[in-house]
Design a protein around this nucleic acid. Structure first.
Length: 429
RNA sequence: GCGGAUGUAGCUCAAUGGCAGAGCGUCGCACUGUGGAUGCGAAUGUUGCGGGUUCGAGCCCCGUCAUCCGCCCCA
């Protein structure tokens, strides 16, 4: 390849095939969001650094955000997540909105990380949030929304499972172990990292964080207690509600789920791929009851999650759940150009058919007919129209079915209706 | 930020340190009013970039850039 100017590291080009997948994902997100009564919204891609500085978590802001000064020297951030923006938007119109608020969004985000499988620096994310309801049932609804998305894309509970925990529960349990309040965030981080370290390394890390060997052993027992949720009224109600919503098969208690963002206060949930090569989080979220006050609003509880396009697409591809007809031709009809002298006649014909409501492409130059048929076939057209000297002088047009190779000639005035009929009779293969 | 691998034709990849190649695709012809098949033919290269070693470098060495994979973190 000659010296093509390179793309920015970690960005992706969406050629029609990829764009079709993205659009399809968007439509799935919309469909599920609207099924639960959520409204679409969007915020700016640029935000001030302060918006994230307080609450998103140090790593996310300091290490993983695109931050740059604008011309006045003010630090601008390419949004790495949407929840702070949502909080800002709600805070600005706090008194005018009708609660509970059900909002969703699908847009681009940026994180300055090393690109690799399942992760890019520019990605798209579906965000959905329920603001103004502090009940466990509200959390259950969010999880049901996530599960409904999985179900509607064909992902089974064996392939993707939603792991749930509650930070208040864990906080109480840690307190019972005699772990001081100021030490608990570090222990949360410790729990979060358990899967990433060997048992020995993890123990060593725990003791480094100031846990006594006895506390460590008790913590271990805690994390293996799959009935721990019974000690949380919140989680008990949550699971009942999930059951009422018919999504229990997707949802499991997992005392090890903590999640990285600092602003979560209660129930947290994470959709995880359980199959194939990538066993990782495909979506994550939780309850954040203090965030609105943190950006300057009056206190208002919220819960919600985000799902990135990269991992979910990999998962859907791996499990064979991506529709295969995504790249269907935008125009099922192509008008060929017989020769130079008839080029504009073909253009007129195409225009006529468009006016009749059909999607029609016209070949733009007088190439050999064979080449034009080949092109029509390649781009997925179903019918090719021929307007040669014979047809032109007799007010006719030839229609060739590219699948059956059959060709008919008919009066031009009847063409649109006949085409419509042919397209309806023989759905795209 | 750390570690590993790979960069050769549009694509996928070959090529003991000794003439840079194949398959697919593209284009042309067989077939000047008809595509997918077949046959024949043709075009296509700063071997990522910059140095070095050598009579000679795609191959060895150094640097650099890019991509991929993993770690960290996360969607």
């Amino acid at each position: 390849m000659k010296n093509v100017i390179p793309a920015v590291k970690g960005t992706r080009d969406f050629y029609p095939r990829e764009m079709a997948i993205r659009t399809w994902l968007y439509s799935k997100a919309r469909q599920v969001s609207e099924a639960f009564g959520y409204q679409e919204y969007e915020g700016p891609m640029l935000e001030t650094l302060e918006l994230y500085a307080a609450k998103s978590g140090e790593e996310l802001v300091k290490e993983q955000s695109f931050v740059f000064p604008d011309r006045s020297g003010k630090l601008i951030t390419l949004r790495p997540e949407l929840t702070p923006t949502l909080m800002r938007m709600v805070a600005r119109r706090q008194g005018q909105l009708t609660y509970p608020l059900r909002w969703w969004s699908f847009g681009p985000f940026w994180r300055y990380e090393r690109p690799q499988k399942g992760r890019s620096r520019e990605f798209f994310q579906w965000n959905i949030d329920l603001i103004g309801a502090a009940t466990p049932e509200a959390d259950a609804e969010m999880v049901a929304v996530m599960a409904t998305f999985y179900r509607s894309t064909g992902l089974t509970p064996d392939q993707v499972s939603i792991h749930v925990n509650n930070r208040r529960l864990m906080d109480d349990q840690l307190a019972k172990l005699g772990i001081q309040a100021n030490q608990r965030p570090a222990v949360f981080r410790l729990i979060d990292r358990r899967d990433k370290l060997s048992p020995e390394a993890w123990r060593e890390y725990a003791l480094e964080q100031g846990l006594s060997p006895e506390q460590f052993d008790k913590l271990l027992t805690l994390l293996e207690n799959l009935d721990l949720w019974k000690e949380s009224d919140e989680l008990a109600r949550f699971f009942e509600a999930v059951d009422a919503l018919g999504m229990s098969s997707y949802v499991h208690f997992n005392p090890q789920i903590i999640r990285g963002l600092d602003y979560y206060t209660g129930t947290v949930y994470e959709g995880r791929a359980q199959t194939g090569n990538l066993r990782r989080a495909v979506a994550g979220g939780g309850r954040y009851d203090n965030l609105l006050a943190d950006v300057g609003g009056d206190p208002l509880p919220g819960t919600g999650f985000a799902m990135g396009d990269v991992v979910i697409t990999l998962l859907l591809e791996e499990t064979g759940n991506l529709p295969d007809n995504l790249e269907a031709s935008p125009a099922p009809v192509m008008v060929t150009v017989f020769d130079e002298s008839l080029l504009l006649a073909s253009y007129r014909l195409a225009s006529e058919l468009r006016a009749a409501g059909l999607n029609v492409a016209c070949y733009p130059l007088p190439d050999k007919l064979g080449k034009q048929f080949k092109y029509a076939d390649r781009v997925g057209a179903r019918l090719a129209l021929i307007l040669g000297p014979d047809e032109e002088t007799q007010g006719q047009v030839a229609i060739k079915d590219l699948n059956t190779r059959e060709q008919i000639v008919l009066p031009r005035a009847e063409a649109a209706q006949k085409i419509r009929q042919m397209l309806a009779e023989e759905p795209a293969s």
